[in-house]
């Protein structure tokens, strides 16, 4: 456990155990609860738009949790230590994204099938939504890391990150919701979603690290 990445991962996971990780799931539940109030309790309609509701809830929960991804480290100075670590900043940022996803994204994936039951989704759809979210939430976290890095130290960062990142998250949302359906189209969408996740897993850490470097001096 001497590598800087492992140390960072262990530290972030230990910090997350201190609490706060469940808040994203509560927010997710709140969004899923609100939508039937808005569109009416018609189960047929909810079943039809269920995957879309779950995706929107997960997307918003991911984006709103991003202010903790780098901001806390910026405030207490750990970010400077991370930048000084004997490892590339890109991979260190990737490690932070991974830790952030394990503590905030993975709980959303696990909670999604349970919330899907409330929306009367059939069992097969529950599995597919969870599968699509497993691929989609890391993609959104990677994209979101760029927004978190760009707005670091800004007082108005909270609202700014979703404004910056939501337009960029459109492809993930489109293919994610399509991949949650069934049929040949959904399989194709799932492959595209996997491709997007891989692409953003590269683009996100690199851009976020570039932003951190540019804004540090």
């Amino acid at each position: 456990m001497n590598s800087p990445h492992a140390a960072l991962l262990m530290r972030d996971l230990a910090l997350a155990r201190g609490g706060g990780a469940g808040l994203g799931v509560v927010f997710f539940l709140a969004v899923v609860t609100l939508i039937p109030f808005a569109v009416g309790p018609d189960l047929a309609l909810l079943r039809r738009i269920g995957p879309a509701i779950l995706w929107l809830g997960a997307l918003l929960a991911t984006l709103l949790g991003l202010d903790r991804l780098l901001q806390a480290d910026h405030e207490d100075g750990s970010l400077d230590l991370i930048a000084l670590a004997p490892a590339g900043l890109e991979t260190m940022v990737a490690t932070k994204i991974l830790a952030h996803w394990v503590t905030t994204g993975l709980p959303l994936v696990i909670a999604a099938p349970a919330f899907g039951v409330m929306l009367d989704l059939p069992p097969s759809a529950l599995g597919r939504v969870a599968l699509a979210l497993v691929l989609g939430t890391p993609a959104m976290a990677s994209l979101g890391a760029v927004g978190a890095a760009l707005t670091i130290g800004l007082r108005r960062g909270g609202l700014l990150v979703p404004v910056l990142i939501l337009p960029l998250a459109v492809p993930v949302l489109i293919f994610g919701v399509s991949a949650s359906g069934d049929g040949a189209e959904a399989n194709g969408a799932l492959s595209v979603l996997a491709g997007l996740a891989l692409g953003y897993a590269v683009l996100g850490p690199f851009s976020a690290a570039a932003a951190l470097r540019a804004l540090r001096d």
């Binding site: 760029v146 760009l150 707005t151 800004l154 108005r156 960062g157 700014l160 910056l164 337009p167 960029l168 459109v170 492809p171 489109i174 293919f175 595209v192 997007l196 692409g199 683009l203 851009s207 570039a210 932003a211 540019a214 804004l215």
Partner: peptide, 29 residues
């Protein structure tokens, strides 16, 4: 949101380039 022009310049440049990588993907999707 950024007061200092040189910081704002770099941040906006990075976001613009991330956006330009994304625009074809968005268009396609």
């Amino acid at each position: 949101a950024m007061e200092e022009p040189s910081r704002a310049a770099k941040a906006c440049a990075i976001l613009t380039l991330v956006g330009s990588v994304n625009i074809p993907i968005i268009k396609f999707s």
